[in-house]
């Protein structure tokens, strides 16, 4: 017998984590991408490398440092103390912070690329048409970079759903809070609950496929409408 309640709890945590993370990634990643695309600072490639670090770093390494940062003796612990908690590790919030850092390069890179692709000209045109910098950003840069934003959302979301090592290090496996799909599958396999593992794995496959397909179709329709 499946414990359906537990299964739904796991699903809900996973979706909540991926959506919150994607949203935060857009808020954090867009200004970074803009700065990386526009700045002429010499040290900007160092920042770019720092942002890209999670791509090459073993997730356990990132998870280890995050554990120290979020734990009771790190800055995460001080923040947690403000509202009476002991630590940010092994909480949903801690997991969000970890996921944002872990998936940052997958959001920053496509947005940066599409900001760079249209160059300086559209922004100059906007300026001669009386648009201030903010106005030009929202009404020219963002619409022109739409494909980049779409890719960023898909990659950020999917990457968060699929993360395992970081979750294991800082999230633990608390049902209804930090227990997410990837960890749950691992658990089921470890305890030889093959049916449950099958169900979740197949469900993940189907879900991921549907999301990517839907977004691709959406993007294609937008392009068709444009031309």
């Amino acid at each position: 017998m499946f414990e359906l309640v537990e299964l739904f709890g796991t699903l809900r945590s996973t979706l909540a984590l991926a959506s919150t993370t994607t949203l935060l990634l857009l808020v954090v990643g867009t200004p970074i991408a803009w700065w990386l695309a526009r700045s002429k600072a010499r040290w900007k490639e160092a920042v770019a490398a720092l942002v890209a670090l999670p791509i090459v770093l073993p997730p356990t390494v990132l998870g280890f440092y995050l554990l120290l940062l979020l734990g009771p003796t790190g800055p995460g612990g001080w923040v947690a103390a403000l509202y009476g908690a002991r630590s940010l590790a092994f909480t949903f919030e801690g997991l969000v912070i970890g996921s944002v850092l872990y998936s940052l390069p997958f959001v920053v890179q496509p947005i940066r690329t599409s900001f760079e692709a249209f160059g300086e000209r559209p922004l100059e045109v906007a300026a001669t048409l009386r648009a201030g910098p903010w106005d030009a950003f929202w009404h020219v840069a963002v619409p022109l970079a739409r494909p980049g934003f779409l890719t960023a959302c898909v990659l950020g979301f999917a990457h968060t759903v699929g993360e395992f090592g970081v979750v294991l290090m800082i999230g633990g496996n608390i049902p209804g809070e930090t227990r997410v799909l990837s960890v749950a599958i691992y658990d089921y396999v470890e305890s030889l609950q093959w049916a449950q593992a099958h169900l979740l794995a197949a469900g993940m496959m189907l879900f991921s496929f549907s999301v990517i397909l839907a977004l691709m179709l959406f993007e294609k329709r937008m392009r068709m409408r444009d031309s």
């Binding site: 000209r121 045109v125 001669t128 009386r130 201030g132 022109l144």
Partner: peptide, 20 residues
């Protein structure tokens, strides 16, 4: 005065219309 506060009209070499 920044560009967006100058009462000028500017026509670039390429039309540079907003594609969107």
């Amino acid at each position: 005065r920044p560009a967006n506060q100058r009462p000028i009209g500017y026509v670039f070499q390429e039309p540079s219309l907003f594609p969107h």
